[in-house]
């Protein structure tokens, strides 16, 4: 492309359209020219060019239902989730026994582990100082999403 754009620049545009009245032909010649430019030995890696790895591909399974949240507090450190960490939360995943979830308790988000018991579900912290949050039968436990990954700055 460089050689052509140079010649094009030095030519008034009106002249350009006179010289190449056929647009298609112009583009074909253009393409030929372009292919001819890189002289020298072809890179042996050409056939192996692949997209570079993307963390998004790795961490985000469903792009429409994945949200990020910030952690405040240390009640989940037993599961490696620390204050200030970044959570990757997927609303599409089912919350089952043992899932780390974002739950809504009294209108606020909390991150805890969901535990099934014989008497219903409860939210468990991963820290000895924090008691289980029992969900009373009349209380509505709302699971906002399921934590898929925790991004922790080392």
């Amino acid at each position: 492309m460089p050689s052509l754009s140079h010649s094009r620049r030095s030519m008034p545009s009106s002249l350009l359209s006179l010289t190449y009245p056929n647009k298609e032909l112009f583009h074909r010649q253009y393409a030929l020219l372009r292919g001819a430019v890189p002289a020298g030995f072809p890179s042996p890696a050409d056939d192996y060019i692949e997209g570079r790895l993307s963390l998004d591909d790795h961490l985000v399974q469903h792009k429409e239902s994945t949200f990020f949240m910030r952690v405040a507090g240390d009640s989940m450190r037993g599961l490696g989730i620390f204050d200030g960490d970044l959570l990757v939360v997927d609303r599409a995943m089912p919350a089952t026994h043992g899932s780390v979830v974002i739950a809504v308790v009294d209108g606020e988000f909390t991150v805890k582990q969901l535990i099934d018991t014989a008497r219903g579900q409860l939210l468990r912290a991963a820290h000895p100082d924090y008691p289980d949050v029992h969900i009373r039968p009349e209380q509505d436990l709302s699971i906002w999403g399921v934590v898929q990954w925790n991004v922790h700055k080392v």
């Binding site: 990020f68 949240m69 910030r70 405040a72 974002i102 988000f109």
Partner: peptide
């Protein structure tokens, strides 16, 4: 702007 700014993410208490 919970979904478009890193500085404005929702906070989950742990």
């Amino acid at each position: 702007r919970y979904t478009t700014e890193w500085q404005e993410l929702a906070v989950a208490t742990a």
